[in-house]
């Protein structure tokens, strides 16, 4: 029997790869034949997406990508090599993870609104650490500033952990990073968490309010992972895979495996997922537009 390929647009390691491997492993068990992860990194995720967009639409080649490729990249790149709205059809969301807005404990702000007031009172004094310009982390942080009206200098890092070190050391006051990356420092007091960016509180940090609760509704930002098929894939196949992913992510041990990595499983029907992607695309389009980044 033929192998099903889940194309991941990142190198091995990292959230997208991990979630795809968990899904592939469990789909293999359900189907009784192999589903494998194939890493096709590069081009900010576009290369992997493009290869699936051009694959035979028979359900044997799927795109296991993350939100940014399908929602943000079209605002950052002149030539994606594929059309995110037309060339790939949504199957299901698999999992998502929220970010945490945190400060160095020396910063006097005890809540998000106090931080906003503090930043507004001393313009040009505050900086925040996050990942490279154009990433989901950076755009989420810009969204937070857009919603709250505070303005800080962005200090970009290759990875979230590297920036975390400079925040804990007290060189940068504010941090915008995923929950799994920062949770150790939050728990031991190296960072003070002010808000999480999910619609609901995180099971890993139950005492930290959501951005909406902290007075910044609309600043929600998730890093999320989903599955897509090439455009011409028959409805029946797309529907079947969507149901199967829901099935394999339902058992308690699957939820536990994901939640330990900071992810919560969130399977959707193809229609729900399509609508979700569209909404995300509009939301980030507004923010990227307001940043005035030039398309590359």
């Amino acid at each position: 029997m033929r192998t099903v390929k889940l194309v991941v647009p990142n190198p091995p390691g990292g959230g997208t790869d991990l979630v795809a491997r968990i899904v592939a492993e469990r789909l293999s068990a359900l189907w009784g034949h192999t589903a494998i992860v194939e890493n096709k990194p590069g081009g900010g995720g576009n290369i992997g997406a493009q290869s699936v967009a051009r694959a035979k639409p028979d359900g044997y080649t799927l795109f296991a990508g993350y939100g940014g490729v399908m929602t943000v990249n079209q605002y950052l790149y002149k030539n994606l090599g594929f059309d995110p709205a037309k060339d790939l059809r949504p199957i299901t969301l698999s999992a998502s993870a929220a970010y945490v807005v945190a400060v160095h404990p020396g910063v006097p702000a005890k809540s998000l609104s106090e931080l906003v007031a503090l930043v507004k009172a001393s313009p040009g004094k505050f900086s925040w650490a996050s990942t490279a310009v154009g990433t989901q982390d950076h755009i989420g942080g810009e969204l937070l500033q857009y919603v709250t009206g505070m303005k800080m200098t962005h200090v970009p890092y290759k990875g979230g952990a590297e920036g975390l070190l400079d925040v804990v050391a007290g060189r940068i006051p504010v941090n915008y990073v995923t929950i799994p990356t920062s949770i150790a420092q939050v728990q031991q007091g190296g960072l003070r968490a002010l808000a999480v960016t999910g619609a609901e509180r995180s099971a890993l940090l139950p005492e930290v309010p959501t951005v909406a609760e902290a007075g910044a509704p609309g600043a929600e930002n998730l890093t999320w992972f989903g599955l897509w098929a090439p455009a011409g894939t028959p409805d029946a196949i797309v529907k079947q895979i969507s149901e199967d992913v829901r099935k394999v992510l339902a058992p308690a041990d699957a939820r536990e495996q994901l939640s330990k990595g900071g992810f919560s499983p969130q399977p959707m029907t193809p229609d729900e997922f399509g609508a979700f992607v569209l909404k995300e695309r509009e939301k980030y389009g507004r923010i990227v537009g307001s940043l005035g980044l030039e398309k590359q």
């Binding site: 990194p41 590069g42 081009g43 900010g44 576009n46 290369i47 950052l76 030539n79 090599g81 990942t131 490279a132 310009v133 154009g134 970009p156 890092y157 290759k158 980044l293 030039e294 590359q296």
Partner: peptide, 20 residues
């Protein structure tokens, strides 16, 4: 590759593979 401070692509426009 891509400059992380501005998102500008350097010498990589001919090959998307060189983005990183």
């Amino acid at each position: 590759g891509t400059d992380i401070n501005t998102g500008t692509s350097r010498f990589a426009s001919a090959f998307p593979e060189l983005t990183e």
